[in-house]
Design a protein around this nucleic acid. Sequence first.
DNA 1: ATGGCGGGTCTAACCCGA
Length: 280
Amino acid sequence: MLIATWNVNSIRTRLSQIIDWMSQVNPDILCLQETKVMDDSFPIEPFKNLGYSVEVYGQKSYNGVAIISKTKAENVQKGFSFKDYDQNIEIFLDQKRLISAEFNGIKIINVYVPNGSSLESDKFQYKINWLNCLASFLNEQEEEGKSICLMGDFNVAPSDLDIHDPDKYEGGIMASEIERNALNNVLKERLIDSFRIFEKNTGHWSWWDYRNNAYELNKGWRIDQIYISKELSSKLKSCVIDSSPRENVRPSDHAPVMIDLNLNVIDDDFFESEDDFFEI
DNA sequence: ATGGCGGGTCTAACCCGA
């Protein structure tokens, strides 16, 4: 099962590029961020024509997330819920940055984490509070015991391996200890960065600034990630960043990231339960 | 670097992103 995430920076501007990419790659699930469109204006038809179903959670001009999938999404949830959150979630309801749904018993959580602007900005505190809210959301999911796939644009480079020039950017926005602590508090010991299972070295980016020829100079950041529950790691076949759409005319500044999960792999728990069955 | 580019919409001496 191919599961992908892509910050497309406007669904309407990028529509034909997304359809082209999906036609080539054939993902089972594609999580989009920065769709920048109200739900009633989202171009659903082109995806339906490819055989996909669409779940959207958008707003005018900014943010906006969507899940495109071959099978219909179950238990779709848009935004944070009103449960035992440390933060007051009211201030997070205006910005459409989270949508989740279940497929084959796996909870897919699609996020567009706030950028935060700079460490001195009010937006930075919003970002940290938002991540703390996401941690509470993950705690709820954990209680339900479902396998989780948390993916999207995190606007945080997990380590200095994920920045083209760490000496220049370390400690600043997207690379501060405060943001990394907040991200790790979301992940805790339960979620694993798929990409780092396969690649231990630096030099792999998912975002390149539009300015200063950043893509041509390969000056990028790896801020788009796919985190999976530990128990899914035995089923993980690959995690790749596909930089080819970044070479399109009028590209998104982000590239898609994709994992391949082999759900036919039978894990140890299954064998144990089978043994128990035959002993009876 | 009040910078660069490229989305958006109130089409601008605009706002926002990363």
